[in-house]
Every structure is written in structure tokens, then in C-alpha cells.
Amino acid sequence: MKESLLEILCCPLDKHDLELEDAEYDGEEVVGGDLVCTECGEAYPIEDGIPNLLPPDMREETPA
């Protein structure tokens, strides 16, 4: 993801802003780290450049 994506993302639970923490970069691309909600503190991992913004109870790899 690009850092500019933060302008359109929010916490899926309470819709507050997210902050990028422990970012790993590959050029301009953020390839790892966490997006952390400034309100509830929930952390959403960035996996291989893709932020996983599913609510924590939906995060598992298996369907349903």
C-alpha cells in the first residue's frame, strides 16, 4: 500500500483515524507494519503490502 491510502481508510469498528506504526518500506510502498486505531487502539496488520482491515473476529484465513 501507499501511505496516501491512509487518507481514505478508517478503523472498521469505530470509524476513527488510523496511524501507521512499525512501517517497513520497499521504495514508496509500505510492505509491512500495523495500522493502529487512534481511538480504540486495535492494530490491523499490513501483510505483503496489503492492509488487513477485517474486524479481528473475521481475520482468519479460512472462509466462514
Binding site: 500500500m1 491510502l5 481508510l9 478508517c10 478503523c11 472498521p12 490491523y44 501483510e47 496489503i50 492492509p51 488487513n52 482491515l53 477485517l54 474486524p55 473475521m58
Partner: peptide
Amino acid sequence: VRADLVSP
């Protein structure tokens, strides 16, 4: 973005 519909 991995997401549930438009939630994030």
C-alpha cells in the same frame, strides 16, 4: 485492502 464490504 482486505475488507468486509465498505467498513474500513
